[in-house]
Amino acid sequence: MTDSSYIFSHRHLLGLADYTADDIRHILDQTDMFREILDRPVPKIPTLRDKTIVNLFYENSTRTRISFELAQKRMGADVVNFSASSSSTKKGESLKDTIQNIESMKIDMVVVRHESPGAAHFLARVIDANIINAGDGAHEHPTQALLDMYSMRQKFGRIKGLKVAIIGDILHSRVVRSNIIGLTKLGAEVVLCGPKTFMPVFIEDMNVRVTYNLEEALAWCDVAMSLRIQLERQEQGLFPSLREYHERFGIKRTHLEKYPDFIVMHPGPVNRGVELESDVADSDRAIILNQVTNGLAVRMAVLYLLSGGSRV
């Protein structure tokens, strides 16, 4: 629990790098209250009925976009969806022009996903609305990290001292960066595990350890978070074959039997038979679907906390 003199004072969620441990704890504490709403017979509250929110998705996304949209609708907001494939971007309009045109229609919040790192920060500079980063390149994906931390806290009752192994394509993952920042701020230990070609140089500077041995990571950890392998990375020559990747870095049923304590997480979508053996994804040690439900509650909490203040 954060103490009573604490005040949440952010207008944007651009990344967890800007948030203190108290900010993160406050969001996780408030998420409990939204989690309860989802179990009500009428899971809907009128809190954002005076808000108009634009979901600006320049990259494909199913889960994150649906999760944000549902969170917004559960809270009574008016929602507009924009996807780059069917839009003015194709006609050559710049991000700045697009967003300034949309802002002229009197919107209050923007949820943005973009392939360029820093896109959300850029929007926060050029317009007045609250900005939520739903993924910017390989930089940050703060709401995913928040829902991961919430799920861990729900399972273990704490983050401090928790041993988290993150396994897979560290190099291209925004989920990893936000998780490392958040987890280390809250006092968890993080070990990264994956092929050398997926390991960024100097990543140890983020207060994490690196191993190339999956057994070692699984023997040590409380939480094994497996990351999605983008299949096109194979064409870039970063790993020889899916089968070899699975052999060396896939979590298998034999691991669950050998190391009986860790839980399995995955940000989705799962490549069955690559990152996780199918049995592992379906086992009761995997909390993947619970992560998805929690994602909805975390996003409601973030929307709630950011919606206050200065435009009134």
Binding site: I7, M33, E36, I45, M75, Y304, S307, G308, S310, V312
Partner: peptide, 22 residues
């Protein structure tokens, strides 16, 4: 906890802390 249903919470600068509903 009725925070979500209040009509006056936005007149405050910061969003009030939501408490448990059970």
């Amino acid at each position: 906890d009725v925070t979500f249903y209040r009509d006056d919470f936005r007149t405050k600068m910061k969003m009030p802390e939501v408490k448990v509903t059970e």
